[in-house]
Simulated scan of single mutants.
Amino acid sequence: MLAIVCPGQGAQKPGFLSPWRELPGVEEALSALSEAAGIDLLRHGTESDADTIRDTAVAQPLLVAAGIIAASSLHQGQDLPAADAVAGHSVGELTAAALGGVLSDEDAMRLVAVRSRAMATAAAAEPTSMAAVVGGVREDVLAAIERHGLHPANLNSAAQVVAAGASEKIAALAEDGPAKARVIPLQVAGAFHTPYMAGAREELAGFAPTLQPSDPAVPLISNAAGEVVTSGARYLELIVDQVASPVDWEACMAELRARGVTAMIEVAPAGTLTGLAKRELKGIALANLNTPDDLEPARALVREHAGTAATDQEA
């Protein structure tokens, strides 16, 4: 069984789209995606510096476009079976929706444009931030986050929870964290996936009816406790709520494990989610699709693993 996964904000790096522009049709595709998002993706993905692409309103559309380009290049001109499941971390779930046939590429870019601007506006309303809490006992970690008046924004793995909230409370957590855990402040100006994003959620709720979702062509595993999305309407409900609710990537990996995943490909800019899978989904085959040089190894993984779960069930 093969899963394709899509990274979230923070994975972007300056110039990471440069290798892809050499492929036929990529510049034209990026131009169309740029028009839908209202942002120059080619310039930001090849020329802009780290500070520029750290801006939420730039980073999120850039990540969704990159994943669409990488996945399209993987299958272009190839007779490859489809993935057995798709999933994405935070904004990566919009990429997954495009790859899974829930949203057209244009609608995915329209949605991420609204999402990113709304989240950036909500983040600017008051000083907030996030911190990764690595290690410790889960109950102790959650208790410490609550004690400091913070929220668990990301449940990334058994060993990593991201806390979010007021900047001074993040600083207090760093000074007085849970036992046997490290608190690592993140370079993020916003308490994403918490009640601080209520305004962004309202804006997305108003925009969602303009979209025309389809039911997933392949199982889409949601950040909402690993729920497997079965309808386009349900996807929109979950993606609207997601901006102000925790991202439970640990549950997504648990669902992949339960489904018998044997291989995972992470689309560009890759490495974060396959890194978590190394520890949580031990023994599965992994591939990072960061440049066109990674296409052939990834295609070999697709040929070997995609569709095997269905075949086993039929047997």
Rank of each mutant, 00 (worst) to 15 (best):
C6S: 14
G8V: 01
G8W: 04
G10E: 08
Q12E: 14
R21W: 06
A32Y: 05
L33V: 11
L42S: 14
R54F: 12
V58Y: 10
L63V: 05
V64M: 09
A66M: 06
I69N: 03
A70Q: 04
S72Q: 15
L74H: 12
Q76W: 09
D79W: 05
P81Y: 04
G88L: 06
H89F: 12
V91H: 05
A98T: 10
A98P: 04
G101V: 07
A108H: 08
A113T: 03
S116Q: 10
P127M: 02
V134F: 05
G135P: 00
G135K: 00
G135Y: 01
E139V: 02
A143F: 00
E146T: 13
E146F: 01
R147F: 05
H148S: 05
L150P: 03
S167W: 01
A179I: 06
V183A: 14
V188C: 14
A191K: 04
H193S: 09
A200H: 01
G206I: 00
P213K: 11
V218D: 14
V218L: 13
V218Y: 11
I221R: 07
G226H: 04
S231H: 09
G232D: 14
R234C: 11
L236F: 12
Q242K: 08
D248W: 09
A254V: 02
R257W: 05
T262N: 12
T272E: 11
G283E: 03
N288S: 14
L289P: 08
D293I: 02
D294L: 03
R299L: 13
A309S: 12
T311W: 08
